[in-house]
């Protein structure tokens, strides 16, 4: 499984073009596929097979509502905890559970895990297999921040959003990079719409393969975006170690608040997190 290579059909226009090209010229073997991933040497393999708390050698927690108490700069509505009711390993999954409850003055609790000061790496392949939660106002993410963020505040440190998703758009994944001059609403970003399937009814693999010259974004066996230094409207800061984060937020600028049809609790099931180089 770890050594598999995934191939994709790039896009229809490209195929048509290739088709024309090949038939016009020499008609050699048609190979309009592209390698999704190339790196196969495992350097981190969090399989979440032992019930209980996540491995403290790899995962720490952000607690509360952010350094300014403002919902992590996004007007998010949840309070992050490390309680087992919000984060636990069970039945082979890491479960991050959003609960609607009165806690520390807010109405929701959830969890945010990060590998800061525990696992940090520049370049490589970073992926997770996840079944996402659902509903208006639910905002899960699997993402990375530059490890120098304490000295080099956001957005200078850089951010790679391997997976962001709005619970009210159950078929749409968002992959982005943020950096100096291209953050928040100006992030370099692309949506990928799943066809004939949803992200909240089964597991999907969300990953990037990151090299000095590009970050490739993929979901399952589909490479859907490549961001290179030429694509960003500012300094390319993806040339140093980053750490991983996983969380489920509620409300905030990206998704808007939950509504009466949002069901609680909501759970993000993470089957594994793997890093390769």
């Amino acid at each position: 499984m770890l050594n598999r290579k995934r191939k994709i059909v790039k896009n229809t226009v490209y195929q048509v073009f290739m088709g024309l090209f090949i038939s016009s010229f020499i008609g050699c073997e048609v190979d309009e596929t592209q390698t999704v991933t190339t790196l196969t040497n495992v350097v981190l393999s969090e399989e979440f097979d032992t019930d209980g708390a996540p491995n403290p050698d790899v995962w720490g927690f952000d607690i509360g509502r952010g350094p300014n108490g403002d919902g992590w700069g996004n007007q998010e509505l949840q309070y992050y905890t490390d309680r087992p009711t919000n984060v636990a390993i069970e039945n082979g999954n890491l479960k991050i559970t959003v609960r609607q409850e009165s806690f520390q003055g807010v109405g929701y609790t959830s969890a945010r895990l990060l590998t800061k000061n525990r696992f940090e790496q520049a370049y490589g392949r970073f992926e997770a297999r996840i079944q996402l939660p659902t509903g208006q106002g639910i905002w899960p993410a699997f993402w990375m921040l530059g490890a120098d963020i304490d000295e080099n505040p956001w957005p200078g440190a850089g951010e790679i959003d391997i997976m962001e998703y709005r619970g009210q758009n159950p078929t749409i994944l968002v992959g982005s990079v943020h950096g100096p001059g291209y953050s928040a609403g100006n992030a370099i970003s692309k949506e990928y719409e799943l066809r004939n399937d949803r992200f909240d009814t089964g597991y999907h693999i969300f990953g990037i393969e990151w090299s000095p010259v590009a970050i490739n974004f993929y979901v399952d066996d589909v490479l859907y975006n490549q961001i290179t230094p030429e694509d960003v409207t500012g300094e390319w800061v993806f040339n140093k170690p980053f750490f991983l984060l996983m969380n489920v937020a509620v409300g905030g600028n990206f998704v808007g608040p939950p509504n009466s049809e949002t069901r609680f609790p909501q759970t993000m099931l993470v089957d594994y997190v793997r890093v390769f180089n």
């Binding site: 659902t134 159950p170 078929t171 799943l194 066809r195 004939n196 399937d197 949803r198 909240d200 009814t201 069901r263």
Partner: peptide, 8 residues
């Protein structure tokens, strides 16, 4: 049709 996109 089989939409595949119905859930919950």
């Amino acid at each position: 049709e089989k939409t595949g996109t119905l859930g919950q």
